[in-house]
Simulated scan of single mutants.
Amino acid sequence: MSAERTREPGELFGPRMTLFADVLSVGLATSVACLPLLTAPAALSSACAVLRGVRQGRPATAGRYVEVLRSRLRVGDLAAGAVALAGALLCVADLALAGAGLPGAALFAVVAGAIGIGALVVGLRACARPESLTDWPAAVRGAARDVVRDPGGCGLVLLAVATAALCAWMLVPLAFLAPGPLALALTAVDVRSVGASGSGP
C-alpha cells in the first residue's frame, strides 16, 4: 500500500477508516449489481479491480465502481455469469439427488461437495485477478494455477466466504455489505500470491 497520508483538516477519520467506509460502499454497489445473477462475476471482479487500485492511489468509491462496471457488461462477462449460475444450479441439483437416498449417495455427496468447493475457490480467485477485466479464460487458468501453487491462499478464500456467510446469516442487512469485505479479502489474497511468487527463485 502507499504511504499513509496525514488526516486532512476537518476529516473525521483517518485513512484506514476511510478505506473501510469505501469498502462498505463498494460492497453495497456490488450487491445491487449482482441482483441479475448473470452479472455477479463481473460485479465482483469490478469490485476487486477498484480495491486493487487503492495501491496506486486511485479512489475506491462507489462512483468509481460504477464507472468500471459500466465497461464490463460485455458478452464474455455475461457468458461467465451464465457458466457460474449453471455450475451453482448443477451443484445444488446434485446435492439434492444425493439427499434423496440413492445408492452411494453419501460418497456422491462428498465428491459433489468437493468439486463444488473447488470450483467456487477457482471462480473467486479468477474474479480477483486483473485478467478478469478483459479475458475470463486467462483469469480462470491463472486462478487454477494459483489453487495448486498457493493452498494457503485457498484456505483464506474459504475463510473469507465463511465469514461473509456467517455475517449475513447473523444479521440479514449485512448481506448487502458483505461483497465489499469479501472482494477486499480476495484482492489481498491475490496480491499476497503475486508477491510470494515474485519473491521466489
Rank of each mutant, 00 (worst) to 15 (best):
P103M: 01
A138P: 04
T39N: 07
A160T: 05
A112Q: 09
A185C: 10
I117E: 08
V194E: 15
A196C: 00
T18E: 14
A82D: 09
R72S: 14
A143L: 09
V122T: 08
A60P: 09
Y65M: 08
C154I: 01
F13W: 12
D94H: 08
L90F: 04
D146T: 05
P41Y: 06
V66K: 13
V122Q: 05
I117P: 03
A105R: 02
V148A: 13
E67M: 04
A144V: 04
C154F: 04
E4H: 11
P179R: 11
L38E: 02
A84E: 08
V75C: 13
P59Y: 06
L156N: 03
A188Q: 13
V148P: 00
A96H: 06
L78M: 13
L38A: 11
S25E: 10
R141D: 12
L177T: 02
G142V: 01
A109Y: 00
A165G: 11
L69C: 10
T6C: 06
A160S: 11
G10L: 02
L102T: 10
L24A: 14
T6G: 15
G198T: 02
G195D: 11
R74M: 02
L37H: 10
S197M: 03
A143T: 03
R7E: 06
L90P: 00
A49C: 01
A119H: 05
P41W: 09
A164S: 14
A82K: 12
V111N: 06
A42D: 01
L186S: 04
V83L: 14
R7G: 02
L107T: 11
A47S: 09
P201D: 13
A82L: 15
A165D: 07
L44T: 05
L44P: 02
L12R: 14
A178N: 04
L177V: 14
A42S: 09
L166M: 14
A143V: 05
F108L: 13
A98W: 12
S25L: 15
V161K: 04
A88Q: 07
A62T: 07
P181Q: 06
L107D: 11
T30G: 09
